[in-house]
Computed example of a mutant assay.
Amino acid sequence: MVRRGGNHTGIRWRVRTGTPWRDLPPEYGPWPAVATRFDKLAVRFEATVLVAAINEWV
């Protein structure tokens, strides 16, 4: 089971590290679920805002 916010945390980890989705640590949930969530965000143009926010936090 993915904890609440796990997909977004997994997306943040993936964007910050630049590794392939398949290398996502298991604590963020199944990588296909996290990658699908990111794709849905990108379609809605929220990924740009998300990446900008991540860059501010890092």
Rank of each mutant, 00 (worst) to 15 (best):
M1S: 13
M1H: 13
V2A: 10
R4L: 14
G5L: 13
G6Y: 06
H8T: 04
H8G: 07
H8P: 00
T9L: 11
T9S: 10
T9Q: 10
G10H: 01
R12C: 05
R12T: 03
R12N: 04
W13M: 04
W13I: 03
V15K: 02
V15P: 00
R16D: 05
T17Y: 07
T17W: 05
T17P: 00
T17V: 08
G18W: 07
G18I: 09
T19M: 10
P20Q: 08
W21M: 06
W21C: 04
W21P: 01
R22C: 07
L24F: 08
L24N: 01
P25S: 09
P25G: 08
P26C: 05
P26R: 09
E27Y: 07
Y28I: 02
Y28G: 00
P30R: 09
P30S: 09
W31Y: 15
W31G: 01
A33T: 15
A33Y: 05
V34R: 00
V34S: 00
A35I: 05
A35E: 12
A35G: 06
R37H: 14
R37F: 11
R37N: 08
R37D: 05
F38V: 03
F38S: 02
F38I: 03
D39F: 08
D39S: 15
D39K: 15
D39A: 15
K40P: 02
K40R: 15
K40T: 14
L41K: 04
L41P: 01
L41D: 07
A42T: 06
A42N: 14
V43W: 09
V43D: 14
R44W: 06
F45C: 10
F45V: 06
E46W: 06
A47C: 06
T48L: 06
T48F: 02
V51K: 02
A52M: 07
A52W: 03
A53T: 11
I54Y: 03
I54N: 01
N55Y: 09
N55K: 13
E56K: 15
E56G: 04
W57H: 13
W57D: 13
V58S: 09
V58E: 15
V58N: 09
